[in-house]
């Protein structure tokens, strides 16, 4: 594989051609916030947290879906980029009900910790907070749509790793929501294998294992890159 040289925040780093910018940043210990991305799943560029500035490009680019090129000059943090990231988080908190004090995932939620890390501490926009359902029909798991940020990690893990494609996104725009099968109760799904991968990859308290009290729901995603490699058939 040919090698290219990049300049990230003034620092020279090398990368294999064909790698994504996010992979390269991670390999070099450069931190960029992400939400929709998860190693082992395809990248979709939906949450916009990983946007970086690339010299010569008119638009900000998502690190997770952008492939590197030689002599690319990247800025990962400046006042504007961090302001945009806080702004996007603010919109997520305005969209649905994320009252952490009553959430099973509090303390283990990626949304919550990103907000803390980026200093997003208040919401200036109208709270939309539509009253959404909780589907607890599955014997072991449940989904609280009020906490969902539509990152589609559950959809992708179920399709790409488990192969069941029980989940998908329905509706569109701000009325979009994740569904199982024909939007039937999860417990009645004819395709769900109850493997629980979706629960583990969900960044918030939206998908959780039943029986957890506030703050008890920890997620485990370390299995993913390994499984993804196994699925591809590489040793």
């Amino acid at each position: 594989m040919s090698v290219c040289t990049l300049f990230v925040d003034g620092r020279e780093v090398s990368a294999g051609a064909g790698e994504t910018l996010l992979e390269v940043l991670r390999e070099n210990g450069i931190d960029v916030p992400t939400l929709c991305n998860l190693e082992g799943l395809s990248a979709v560029g939906a949450c916009r947290m990983c946007l970086v500035a690339v010299k010569g490009q008119g638009r900000l680019m998502p690190a997770c879906t952008t492939r590197v090129w030689d002599h690319m000059e990247v800025t990962t943090h400046d006042e504007r980029l961090d302001r945009y990231r806080r702004g996007v988080l603010e919109l997520l908190f305005a969209e649905r009900n994320h009252v952490c004090s009553v959430c099973v995932a509090s303390g283990h939620c990626e949304l919550q910790s990103l907000a803390a890390q980026l200093g997003m501490d208040h919401v200036r926009f109208d709270y939309l907070h539509p009253p959404l359902a909780v589907d607890a029909s599955h014997p072991r798991f449940a989904i609280d749509h009020n906490r969902c940020i539509l990152c589609t990690r559950c959809v992708r893990v179920c399709d790409e790793i488990e192969g069941a494609h029980t989940w998908d996104v329905a509706g569109r725009g701000v009325k979009a929501w994740v569904v199982t099968d024909l939007a039937e109760p999860w417990g009645e799904s004819s395709t769900c294998t109850s493997c629980g991968k979706c629960v583990q990859v969900c960044p918030t308290g939206s998908l959780f294992v039943k029986g957890h009290a506030v703050g008890e729901m920890e997620k485990r995603t370390a299995f993913l890159p390994y499984l993804a490699r196994r699925r591809k058939g590489t040793p």
């Binding site: 399709d159 494609h165 998908d168 509706g171 569109r172 569904v179 099968d181 004819s190």
Partner: peptide, 10 residues
């Protein structure tokens, strides 16, 4: 997949 059909229809 069923959920895809539903996702597209909606």
């Amino acid at each position: 997949p069923l959920s895809k059909a539903y996702g597209v229809a909606t």
